[in-house]
Design a protein around this nucleic acid. Structure first.
Lengths: 209, 209
DNA sequence: ACCTGAACACCGTTCAAGT
DNA sequence: ACCTGAACACCGTTCAAGT
């Protein structure tokens, strides 16, 4: 009996409650959606009083901030795994696919990551850090594609452009604004939009002449 | 005294409560943010009981759905006004600017328009309709830019690409994920991202050869 | 140090009752 | 037809009290 007080239904709970709360919240999040995740329900699922969470997090916002930070960390990892050795376009394709696939596999988490609740004031350090890490991964991919330095002007501009594109596509797909969002594959959306950009680019450059 | 019961503080209220509720909700929305808009606060601001709204809307979701529909209608109108006669690139610029400017002028409304609360199941007809109208306006602009028919394959693909880009950029700016989001102008963001796309496009096409 | 229970101020929503 | 008031089930959060 190395661990005596293991998962008892008694009054007092053992330690390491914070990770248990986060894990329960992560599960509940995808069950009830990003707007209906309640601290009370999370506590109840863990089997702890409604107010226990306040000894590990300042408030609900801090708990879901950690969830969002976790999401950005996983997104960064997914992007890192997606680094391909192909041509410039293949790299863009691979990164976009990894991004969209992560979000469609964790739709409520992805929506939470961009929740208006984090928009103003001070973010917790973890969220700020993982956000930057994820964007850094994206910048790295863009730098490799362009064959330029990470801090070059082109890489900075192209990174924001690339993030705008893939976040926008992902957001539209997840929110169901695109017809047949449920039926179509990640590849379908990425391929078609990349073709769309090509058509726009050609039209703009030829008209300039 | 053509209108006798005008804005009295008596128990019973005059008619046309629905538009009054919507107007109050629209104001409150930008004051408290998209996640904290409560039906009770809206009712109180209008000076009516907490349950009065239920005689004009099925529930909170239906009221904010009308708000979102209003947002899409105004976005469509803004895009329509932005139609420029310049080159292809100028048209893209003008449309993007109008889009971003509308969202930054109504940040809480824009976030509400893409709220996870509308993601699943059946939308109210008004929201569905105005969403399509706004996207239709965007399609029209893209069709003019490409010089192709509205229902052509290229226009459909390029429209989703363009919407992804501008919605993504807008979302990132509004949520404050881009450094210095408060300081920079709409023009700055649009110009820089368009340059970013150009850099990516050049890199991809030259590498293909 | 960690957790609970009662309490408070807020929600959305239902329903019987009032005019 | 339109509105109110009481009521219910849920929230987040504070705080004194328990181990």
């Amino acid at each position: 009996m190395a661990k005596p007080a293991n998962r008892s239904r008694d009054a007092y709970h053992v330690g390491n409650l914070a990770p248990q709360l986060l894990a329960a919240a992560r599960t509940l999040l995808e069950e009830v959606g990003p707007t209906k995740l309640s601290l009370r329900a999370v506590s109840e699922r863990v089997g702890v009083s409604a107010t226990a969470a306040y000894h590990h997090f300042q408030n609900r916002n801090e708990l879901i901030s950690h969830l969002a930070a976790q999401g950005f960390a996983e997104l960064a990892a997914a992007l890192q795994r997606a680094c391909s050795n192909g041509s410039g376009l293949d790299r863009v394709r691979a990164g976009s696919l990894a991004y969209l696939h992560f979000a469609r596999s964790n739709p409520a988490l992805y929506q939470l990551m961009f929740s208006p609740e984090f928009t103003d004031e001070a973010l917790i350090p973890a969220l700020q850090r993982e956000r930057l890490a994820a964007f850094g991964e994206l910048k790295r991919m863009v730098a490799e594609t362009l064959g330029q330095a990470l801090d070059s002007s082109d890489v900075r501009k192209a990174s924001v452009a690339a993030w705008s594109y893939i976040h926008g596509l992902t957001s539209l797909v997840i929110h169901g604004l695109l017809p047949g969002a449920a039926d179509n594959s990640d590849e379908h959306f990425v391929e078609r939009t990349l073709e769309g950009f090509a058509a726009l680019a050609i039209s703009c450059t030829t008209q300039i002449k």
